[in-house]
């Protein structure tokens, strides 16, 4: 990402490229912050304010997290098979796996 930015700076002759930030918004109390998109800002304080103006104009949120995109580490899609498939045959982690009499209440 950083290398890419430098290249484009040369192309556009712009020394002032603001870094990219990922924006997470809690839409209401009790819910997790959810990724809603990204934007550019000079620093974290500005990123939060930009997020307020860009992503909550229609009362979409009550709390904002921002993370500079370059600090996000992601799993590799090529690992999908080894990462996620093994969970396929572990149905015992799901409550419906257990066959219990209907008379049993409050469980």
């Amino acid at each position: 990402m950083t290398a890419n930015n430098t290249i484009s700076n040369v192309i556009s002759g712009d020394k002032g490229s603001w870094p990219l930030w990922e924006i997470f918004i809690r839409s209401r109390q009790g819910l997790d912050h959810k990724h809603v998109g990204s934007l550019h800002a000079a620093d974290a304080a500005m990123a939060i304010e930009n997020a307020r103006d860009v992503y909550t104009r229609r009362m979409e949120g009550i709390s904002i997290w921002v993370v500079e995109s370059k600090f996000i580490h992601a799993s590799n899609p090529d690992d999908a098979a080894s990462f996620y498939d093994p969970a396929n045959d572990k149905v015992y982690r799901h409550p419906t796996f257990y066959d219990l009499p209907d008379e049993l209440k409050h469980m």
């Binding site: 603001w18 930009n50 103006d53 860009v54």
Partner: peptide, 11 residues
């Protein structure tokens, strides 16, 4: 000067 601030000032 940049989209994000265009939106901010319009607000």
């Amino acid at each position: 000067p940049i989209l994000e601030q265009d939106i901010a000032l319009s607000n």
